[in-house]
Design a protein around this nucleic acid. Structure first.
Lengths: 157, 157
DNA sequence: TTGCTGAGTCTGTCAATCAGACCTAGCCTG
DNA sequence: CAGGCTAGGTCTGATTGACAGACTCAGCAA
């Protein structure tokens, strides 16, 4: 059976566009750091082992794309510096990070368990990414999700 | 304030491990194709424009890592071939793909809207990735999620 | 004046990406 | 059974990116 997807163009696919930002080796690791509250160049570098040049590139790319912003700050007794903080666009990446974390925890963790969990501030219970439809139904089986062309779909030329 | 994360090692971080698989330029795009039902080498290549060599590499990497499997099939009147299908581990990437799609749709879509939506098979309503805690509370604000060291956490040496 | 520190830049090496040409197994047609 | 077609690749060479290690630079402090 010929997949229906073959009739539709992928030139404006938003997954591809998102992966142009997120799809470089270290980008998501940098975002993990920022979500964890690590906001300064050298802290990130020491923790992650990312080469300086690459970290510089990734951070400026993320600033340029609007995911992070540079925020000046000044600690008493040192000169003014800046740190990297999430913008609204960046904060909205939480579900992506949590989804990746959940998958990694399930298939790639060491036997003793994952090194990090995310919890709900109010009740302390573990937070996970779940799929839900606009009608409020939970979607647990992958087979229950059907991709369909959206408003911006274009036929292939 | 010094971030607590600095005390913890990241060597066994499951996000980093997941991104070793997902974090290459084309991997997620390949997965998007497979989730959309496009399972054959040439269909993918024509649709995505991925260079042959790279597509070969990505597919065999994904097979090797257990995300895809090669399935032989035979269409009447042609020789036996094989196609790529998701394993259980691969199917569990749905929440990741949907989360990326949701973010991309929100910030990177063309004005006329996203080219693809995912819907619930039963009711046809749009499916989105949401965060929920184990107690069943919905988590809508990024600030309501708190990262804490998990069972596999190691102090930094 | 010299030194320290956070946040870089510069340089050279090595690996990955990419485009484009070439190859190959099995089927089909003449 | 020779030749062609096609899906699914290899091979080759040019460009880009990752990486390590050394160097730079601004401002504070001794």
């Amino acid at each position: 059976m010929r997949p229906a997807a073959l009739d539709w163009s992928v030139e404006n696919c938003t997954i591809a566009r998102a992966m142009e930002i997120l799809g470089e080796r270290w980008t998501v690791v940098v975002l993990r750091e920022v979500f964890n509250g690590v906001r300064r160049f050298d802290d990130m570098r020491v923790r992650t082992g990312i080469p300086r040049q690459v970290l510089t590139n990734r951070l400026s790319m993320l600033v340029e794309r609007g995911v992070l912003r540079r925020e000046p700050y000044r600690e008493p007794g040192s000169r003014p510096r800046h740190e990297y903080r999430l913008t609204g666009m960046g904060l909205d990446l939480w579900p992506v990070l949590v989804a990746v974390l959940g998958w990694g925890d399930r298939y790639l963790a060491d036997p003793e368990g994952p090194p990090l969990t995310v919890t709900h501030r109010d009740c302390g219970a573990e937070v996970r990414a779940a799929l839900r439809c606009a009608e409020g139904h939970d979607v647990t089986e992958p087979q229950d999700v059907v991709p369909v062309p959206g408003p911006g779909a274009r036929r292939r030329g």
